[in-house]
Design a protein around this nucleic acid. Structure first.
Length: 838
RNA sequence: GCCCUUGUGGCGGAAUGGUAGACGCAACGGACUUAAAAUCCGUUGGCCUGAACAAGACCGUGCCAGUUCGAGUCUGGCCAAGGGCACCA
């Protein structure tokens, strides 16, 4: 008998799959298309078991869909620009390109292929290759030409460790997303932005179309975009006629309670309207506020700060004179950068007014009477102290006051979003250059399409990790002729956020080798949207929001015809393990020193076993803890199949069994039962891998049960009847097909020994024999008062009356009925009889 | 503070409102073996009655209520853990 040697057979089949290109889809095939995708990985070097999960889940889905008759696109590539490569260059003097390409080679050939994944490598894209980033630049210029890319001077998030600015989405808790130990600093800088806010409304509304996304992800996006309805109210200033201050509020109903205004410290009007004697103090405050890190500014314990400008504003509703302040609790880039202070009905305003002893006027009250407020009253109520609006409900008051503002010209209804424009400039070398040129005569000039890509210089680059981007120091690269007037000009030295590269890679896969255009419109419309996207929950906002934005913008540029890129999204949970460093179970990662490498395990027990364990440990969305013991358990399962197969091969004539067996002809009861289990397995596994469930752990459990049942059946058997051989062959044939997406190598190997045609991965997914699932007998559960009393086997299909009679005739029931009154009997046919007594 | 998710044996986890604990890990027992490993076959929620590895009772899905003939599953409240947002006017 052969021994199960996973390393050998896995290597054998991986080579053959590669050579025969069996995972290659056909553009515009007549089979229905299916686009299966896993999130663009960063080639960080060595993969561990934690990384394997996403690839395994996606691979099972891809393989299953191929067998189910779909034309499956399952591509792979690398998000290859980024900081780690540049840091490696600084620390180890290896050029970023070399480091990156070496990692990609290792990851692709030693890890992804060894896992048994089924990618079409002919469509591979690598974002740091000029063939790719030419299109990144081209797309940037489309945004620029459509007024969706612009520069502005703004307070930005600066990570001192990364030595670059960050987008809002890349700041977590005031820290850099890559360095949870580094406070983000605030700087005023002129930077490039993409106008994602122009799509805020559509991005929020179209979430409703995404029925294939988990609610939690949609909710996170919704909160991030943060739509709010309110009004813009314009305040004029006492004695300064040429300046007006618009504020945004969600509570126009509290307009009569405004006792001061607050501007953000960076607000451009501040110095203009400050009275001379306050100028010094105000300037000092602005400077102080600018120095605060994000974490200081957000600190909960932080007391409110601010200084008065000495300027007086006039409430347009009632003419009341109120002071104007600046305070850092007003944010420049939300609303209008100015707030109307209503201490009676806003917690922050209340704290501010208390600290600086400002007036507090209650205008909403639960009972229409003024109260002694110890805190802001933020509940709904009846309007008071509000002139003509007194005694009406505040919700109605909102509309009425907006109506009056519009009529009198001091305001209007307005919708605001928490979402900010996407800051895409990065002061780093290893990224895609922004293809623009600064010319003294022509101003900003886009690099013409024919000159794309603007190549990253590779010679004479010095990586020091300080003093700004290395690109700033490469004179021969910076100095160019203006494409318009041919005079001396300079290149933009900022590179793009790498999230730009990953915002369209999934579109490029549809036509990855096209060197004439970013992609052919017909091909992109054929393959997209992605039918099943698999990736980590950490991208719930970042990558997924950016990609949705890109899809919508590209649609408006006329490049494609759909609104949403990813129809179904599966967010897999992380893989954890005990970390000796943190002394607890934590996410598997090199820095926590709790990684299990792939190579050793694959060598010893095989990728098939690792795949099975990862799928078996829990449903995909849940977290799993890696257990080498548990993975060995799955190895044992595969060995069990292996031995069963070759034992039977020696004892009986094994041959593939196609089609069904006539159940009525199987007289032996255990054999009929085995046939039933085999068919039940086909049914259950098919349901579990379908997109209605995606519950792979139960699918594997069902297959284990089938193998257990076969072992039990052949126990002590020396010879086999023809019927038995048929049922066993039926069971094995279908088991191999069902297991093929999960454990692709061992099934391919056994399929070959079985005389099956290459490849098992190209044969149709099995269907089950309905007639086999019909049984003559059922297990009837007898309950009294909802508690199980007895279980008995009886004929199927009996009437409610008959079942009730059977139940009441049971000795156990009779005994318990003594001295009790029978209230009623509930009968669920073929299932349960519940006897209710008093 | 607001929003979301999750609480089931020693562990990971199963259960269209209808037999709680499938399947696996760990543990224990048996067979095989000179022996061990491997393998094959079993046992394994708690507690109690019982001479019993006969039979059986009771309790049990974070806690407290409710709906229902019947609740791990539905509803409300509480507790705990995890995640997201957090001076967004």
């Amino acid at each position: 008998m052969f021994q199960y040697k996973p390393k050998e057979i896995e290597n054998k089949w991986q080579k053959k799959w590669d050579k025969t290109h069996i995972h290659k889809p056909v553009d515009f095939d007549n089979k229905p298309k299916y686009y299966s995708l896993v999130m663009f990985p960063y080639p960080s070097g060595d993969l561990h078991m934690g990384h394997m999960r996403v690839y395994t889940i996606s691979d099972v889905i891809s393989r299953h869909r191929r067998m189910s008759g779909f034309n499956v696109l399952n591509p792979m590539g690398f998000d290859a620009f980024g900081l780690p490569a540049e840091n490696a260059a600084i620390e180890r003097k290896i050029p970023p390109k070399e480091w990156t390409l070496k990692n990609i080679d290792h990851m692709k050939n030693q890890q992804l292929k060894r896992m048994g994944t089924s990618y079409d490598w002919d469509r591979e894209v690598i974002s740091c290759n000029p063939e790719y980033y030419r299109w990144t630049q081209w797309l940037f210029l489309q945004f620029y030409k459509n007024n969706l890319a612009y520069q502005k001077e703004a307070p930005v998030n600066w990570c001192p460790k990364c030595q670059t600015v960050l987008a809002n989405e890349q700041v977590e808790d005031g820290k850099c997303w890559r360095h949870d130990d580094t406070d983000v600093e605030r700087k005023m800088m002129r930077q490039w932005f993409l106008k994602i806010t122009q799509y805020a409304e559509e991005l929020i509304n179209d979430l409703d179309k995404l029925s294939g996304w988990a609610d939690r992800v949609k909710i996170m996006q919704k909160n991030w975009i943060g739509r709010s309805e309110g009004a813009e109210i314009v305040f004029s200033l006492d004695g300064i006629s040429d300046v007006k201050i618009p504020v945004y509020t969600t509570r126009p109903d509290t307009l009569y309670g405004v006792t001061y205004l607050v501007l953000a410290p960076e607000h451009p009007l501040v110095l203009k309207i400050t009275v001379p004697e306050n100028k010094k103090k105000v300037e000092e405050y602005i400077k102080q506020a600018g120095l605060l890190t994000e974490i200081d500014r957000l600190s909960e314990t932080k007391e409110k700060t601010g200084v008065p400008l000495g300027t007086i504003a006039i409430n347009p509703a009632n003419g009341k004179k109120i002071p104007v302040w600046i305070a850092d609790y007003a944010l420049l880039d939300y609303g209008t950068g100015a707030v109307m202070g209503v201490p009676a009905h806003d917690t922050r305003d209340y704290a501010f007014a208390k600290k600086f002893k400002l007036e507090i006027i209650q205008v909403i009250s639960p009972d229409g009477k003024e109260q002694n407020l110890n805190d802001a009253y933020i509940e709904p109520g009846i309007m008071i102290n509000s002139g003509e609006f007194n005694s009406i409900n505040n919700e109605e008051g909102k509309k009425k006051i907006i109506g009056q503002a519009a009529k009198k010209g001091f305001g209007s209804a307005k919708i605001s979003y928490r979402l900010r424009d996407w800051l895409i400039s990065r002061q780093r070398y290893w990224g895609c250059p922004i293809p623009l040129v600064y010319c003294d005569s022509c101003d900003l000039v886009p690099v013409p399409d024919k000159d794309l890509p603007v190549l990253l210089p590779e010679k004479n680059i010095e990586f020091t990790g300080s003093g700004g981007s290395p690109l700033k120091k490469t004179a021969e690269w910076i100095n160019v002729k203006c494409p318009k007037c041919n005079k001396d000009a300079k290149r933009e030295t900022d590179t793009m956020d790498t999230f730009i590269c990953s915002s369209f890679y999934y579109l490029r896969y549809a036509d990855a080798t096209n060197d004439k255009e970013v992609f052919d419109k017909k091909k992109v419309n054929y393959w997209l949207p992605v039918d099943q996207y698999v990736g980590g929950i950490e991208h719930a906002i970042l990558h997924l929001l950016y990609s949705r934005f890109f899809t919508k913008a590209l649609r408006d540029f006329g490049l494609l015809d759909f609104d949403e890129p990813f129809t179904n999204l599966l967010s897999q949970g992380m893989v954890t393990m005990f970390s000796p460093k943190e002394n607890k179970v934590a996410k598997m990662s090199k820095s926590k020193r709790n990684v299990v490498g792939t190579t050793e395990f694959f060598d010893e027990h095989g990728a098939d076993a690792a795949r099975l364990f990862i799928l078996f440990a829990a449903p995909p969305e849940q977290e799993i803890e890696w257990s080498t013991q548990g993975a060995i358990g799955q190895y044992r399962f595969l060995e069990r199949i292996w031995r069963l197969f070759f034992n039977l091969k020696d004892a009986a004539a094994l041959h593939l069994y196609e089609g069904f067996i006539d159940v009525r002809a199987i007289h032996e009861l255990p054999l009929r039962n085995l046939y039933r289990i085999a068919n039940y397995t086909i049914k259950s596994v098919s349901e579990d891998v379908s997109d209605k469930r995606y519950i792979f752990n139960t699918a594997i459990a069902r297959m284990t049960e089938l193998v257990n049942a076969m072992y039990k059946f052949i126990l002590d058997k020396k010879s086999y009847t023809e019927d038995e051989i048929n049922v066993l062959n039926f069971s094995i044939t279908n088991l191999l097909k069902l297991l093929a997406p999960f454990a692709p190598h061992i099934t391919e190997e056994l399929w070959e020994h079985y005389g099956g045609k290459y490849s098992i991965h190209q044969i149709p997914w099995p269907s089950f024999d309905k007639s086999a699932l019909i049984t003559d007998e059922i297990e009837l559960v007898i309950q009294m008062g909802g508690k199980k009393i007895d279980v008995l086997t009886t004929k199927k299909g009996q009437s409610q009356k008959e079942l009730e009679k059977i139940a009441l005739n049971q000795d156990k029931v009779k005994l318990r009925l003594e001295g009790k009154e029978l209230v009623k009997v509930v009968v669920v046919p073929d299932k349960i009889v519940n006897i209710v007594v008093k």
